[in-house]
């Protein structure tokens, strides 16, 4: 049976690391990367990509529109 899988791409340089996407994600896919971008922000990355369902919650609450969400049947 085909499964719905999602993935997100974070625009690292534009991310301010506010963390709102982390708490918005129902599957705990995202977390701070522990690294910083050139502007000094601890940007967000997928830490649990297998769990992503492409629901867009993270991107919806992102104030800086840094998240692109993909969803596909695999």
């Amino acid at each position: 049976m085909a499964e719905i899988k999602g993935a997100v791409v974070v625009d690292v340089e534009r991310c301010k690391g506010c963390g709102l996407c982390i708490v918005a994600c129902p599957k705990k896919v995202l977390d701070h990367s522990g690294d910083v971008n050139s502007r000094g922000y601890d940007y967000v990355k997928m830490v649990n990509p297998d769990a992503c369902i492409g629901c867009t919650s993270c991107a919806t609450v992102c104030p800086d529109s840094v998240i692109t969400v993909y969803r596909a049947k695999i």
């Binding site: 709102l20 867009t56 992102c62 104030p63 800086d64 529109s65 840094v66 692109t68 969400v69």
Partner: peptide
């Protein structure tokens, strides 16, 4: 792609603080 930055948003980085509702 099911969600991406609106084409009407320009590419510059907003001056708002992280997490600001304005964004």
């Amino acid at each position: 792609i099911v969600y991406k930055k609106s084409g009407l948003l320009r590419d510059n980085i907003m001056h708002y603080c992280p997490g600001c509702s304005h964004g």
